[in-house]
């Protein structure tokens, strides 16, 4: 009997995503964001020209998970390291991938100055409001009252100040060309995140300037929630303080969306 169907691939692992298991906890959205980045690298055809700069934090093994050249930076210094790479390899696509402790606390100077210079790099900023790798300490982005191992009575804004809204802060710098906040807690937000990653790469590829996508991300383990509750917590607790949206889209960047 003649075969009635042909095989059509509708989904496969992105080529830029390594065929290994990640070390991430169940329900953590790092893996999902990695995959979205890998897909963008595939679709933009930049696997052979991309250089990833991994942070100190849960994503420090990023270079194991992506099939692109990569380095791991000192804590918070990824934007400086990316600057060094980009300045001597201006035709390559250089991106950093940083958590909230890395980018918004210890690396505040480096990220602000990379943006201020309009450094032509792409930054993926994964904000899960906690220090994951070291076991759940308070992050610069932890919410008011949020209980962590280093804020056992909840973040006290009287002594620690309010959490830092990085997208808003960086969008205020003239050098920033594209600064948006996305999340990955449901199909709708994932789709928007997917698009933003592509735009952020394209902004760099067109030489427009500094591009950053902030992701509201989950940390079920350190939030002491199950994966489903964690996604809910992003939506219900994080998003009101960190509204999703576009904070800076330069005129040229608009055409690349």
């Amino acid at each position: 009997m003649k075969q009635q169907w042909e095989e059509r691939v509708v989904y496969q692992r992105p080529r830029a995503l390594a065929s290994v298991s990640t070390g991430y906890c169940p329900g953590c959205t790092h893996g999902l964001i990695h995959k979205l980045i890998a897909e963008a690298i595939d679709d933009l055809g930049i696997q052979e020209t991309t250089i990833a700069v991994a942070p100190v934090g849960c994503a420090l093994f990023l270079t194991d998970y992506l099939e692109v050249d990569g380095v791991m930076a000192a804590h918070g210094r990824a934007p400086a390291m990316a600057t060094g790479i980009k300045r001597v390899e201006p035709d390559k696509v250089v991106f950093t991938y940083q958590g909230d402790g890395d980018l918004a606390s210890i690396g505040m100077a480096e990220i602000v100055w990379a943006a201020a210079r309009g450094e032509n790099i792409t930054v993926f900023f994964v904000n899960n409001a906690i220090y994951g790798m070291t076991g759940g300490q308070m992050a610069p982005t932890s919410l008011p009252g949020q209980i962590t191992t280093s804020s056992p009575r909840g973040r006290d804004v009287e002594t620690m100040g309010m959490p830092v809204r990085m997208a808003e802060l960086l969008a205020g710098l003239p050098g920033a060309a594209y600064v948006v906040r996305r999340s990955v807690y449901d199909a709708r937000t994932i789709k928007a995140a997917r698009q933003a990653i592509r735009t952020a790469f394209r902004v760099q590829m067109e030489g427009v300037g500094f591009a950053l996508v902030e992701f509201l991300s989950s940390c079920p383990t350190n939030w002491r929630l199950n994966p489903a509750q964690a996604l809910e917590w992003i939506k219900e607790d994080m998003e009101p303080y960190y509204p999703l949206g576009d904070y800076k889209v330069s005129d040229i960047a608009k055409q690349l969306q």
Partner: peptide, 26 residues
């Protein structure tokens, strides 16, 4: 060639690190 006045020595050495990883004489 590349000259960049960094925001700090911390940043400067990490820029150097990045450029060196890319194989540049730095």
């Amino acid at each position: 060639r590349v000259f960049l006045q960094a925001e700090s020595e911390v940043a400067a050495i990490n820029m150097v690190y990045g450029a060196a990883c890319a194989g540049a004489r730095v």
